[in-house]
């Protein structure tokens, strides 16, 4: 339980910090830390396959892609954008922790857990029961790739048509 709470706190801290960093590189690393914490939380809940995906894809692959891209495109003369001042960090964390604690306490007193369903293997759920979700995810990835190609395309010259 202590490990779980510690990971959740660190997860929130990492997420808040990655929004406050002025350097994109630090933000990418903050995201990686958040993903690692989330992986540990998922392991704690017994969602081992989800945790492995989170660790390998989000904390690993995506961080490598982000860090590589930021390093390759970073302009050393570029000044950081102004972000939320760091003095807001503590009040934000306190408010977030208060809301989270209040929400969890309220839910714990009101939620009656649903009867446990019959256990299924990951393969059953992923390929059998929820394979339409795989189709949806493929469509989202396709939209993302097409989106990147569309955003990075060379725009034709010309304005209105007389």
């Amino acid at each position: 339980m202590t490990l779980l709470i510690g990971c959740l706190v660190l997860l929130v801290v990492a997420v808040v910090l990655l929004g406050l960093f002025q350097d994109l590189l630090y933000s990418a690393l903050g995201l990686a830390v958040a993903s690692i914490m989330l992986s540990i939380v998922l392991f704690q809940f017994g969602a081992n396959i989800a945790a492995v995906f989170e660790l390998s894809v989000c904390a690993g692959l995506i961080t490598v892609l982000f860090v590589s891209t930021v390093s390759l495109t970073k302009d050393s003369d570029q000044k950081g954008e102004s972000r939320l001042p760091a003095r807001f960090l503590l009040p934000m964390l306190v408010v977030f922790a208060g809301v989270a604690f209040g929400g969890v306490t309220w839910l714990a007193s009101h939620v009656a857990a649903a009867p446990a369903a019959a256990p299924h293997t990951f393969q059953d759920v992923f390929w059998g029961q929820r394979s339409s979700d795989v189709l949806g995810q493929i469509a989202i990835i396709l939209a993302g790739v097409l989106g990147m190609l569309a955003v990075l395309r060379v725009k034709l010259q010309g304005g209105h048509h007389d």
Binding site: G136, A139, I140, G144
Partner: peptide, 9 residues
């Protein structure tokens, strides 16, 4: 999920 497909596009 399908809402997200439409949204990303």
């Amino acid at each position: 999920l399908f809402l997200e497909v439409a949204s990303v596009a």
